[in-house]
Computed example of a mutant assay.
Amino acid sequence: MANVTNNRPLSPHLQIYKPIPTMVMSIVHRITGGALYVGTLLVAWWLVAAASGPAYYEWANWVMGTWIGRLVLIGYTWALVHHMLGGLRHFMWDLGHGFDKHFTTKLAKAQPVVSICLTVLIWAIALLVR
């Protein structure tokens, strides 16, 4: 329903607002939180496979070793790192720091870059240690 005098909506929604970095990171934070539920089910499945015996454990490792399995694991790692960085950002705000508009925008722009770099670093270390 529109405000007749100014032809504006009574209740703004996402189609009205211009996406800004902090808004996008808030949405991505919620999406990664949801993705972590699914990823945690995969971790639980892997633990059940490990407890079920060598044959089932080997099959679970084979599934996660395929290119699709690796892609899922890399995505889970990224979601975990990205969500953690968002949580640290919120923790900083809970402590009363970092509310300057320009600082929050820089932090929001840096978050995806840092999360991707940390994910690549984690996987590089994991593959080197392996």
Results as ranks from 00 to 15, higher is better:
H13L: 15
T104C: 01
V43K: 03
S115D: 04
G33Q: 01
A49K: 00
V63D: 01
A110G: 05
L10K: 07
W62N: 07
R130K: 12
S11T: 06
A50N: 01
Q15Y: 10
Q111D: 10
E58R: 15
W62C: 09
L71Q: 03
A49D: 00
G39S: 11
W78N: 03
L121I: 09
Y76H: 12
G86L: 02
W62F: 15
L47G: 12
R70N: 05
S52L: 01
R89I: 01
V114S: 08
K101E: 04
L127Y: 05
I16M: 13
M92L: 02
E58W: 02
I116L: 14
P19K: 01
A35P: 12
G39W: 09
L80Q: 02
F103M: 09
F99C: 00
A110H: 05
A49P: 01
T119S: 07
V24L: 11
Y76N: 10
N61L: 05
A79V: 03
P54T: 08
H90G: 04
Y76W: 11
L71Y: 14
I74W: 02
M1H: 05
T77P: 00
T32Q: 12
W45T: 03
K101R: 05
Y76M: 11
R130P: 09
Y17V: 10
V72N: 01
A2G: 08
L127H: 06
L36M: 06
L71I: 11
D94F: 00
G34Q: 02
W67N: 13
V38T: 11
I68C: 09
I125V: 13
R70D: 06
L118H: 04
G65P: 04
W59C: 06
W62M: 02
H83G: 11
Y76A: 09
K106E: 07
Y57S: 14
A110I: 07
Q111C: 08
L88Y: 09
G39T: 06
L14W: 13
N7Q: 14
N61G: 12
A44Y: 02
Y37W: 15
V72E: 07
L42R: 11
R89K: 11
I74E: 01
T104Y: 01
T5G: 07
A60G: 00
T5W: 14
P19M: 01
A110D: 06
W93H: 02
G69T: 07
I27T: 01
L14K: 07
A50V: 10
L118F: 07
T32N: 04
S115W: 13
V72K: 06
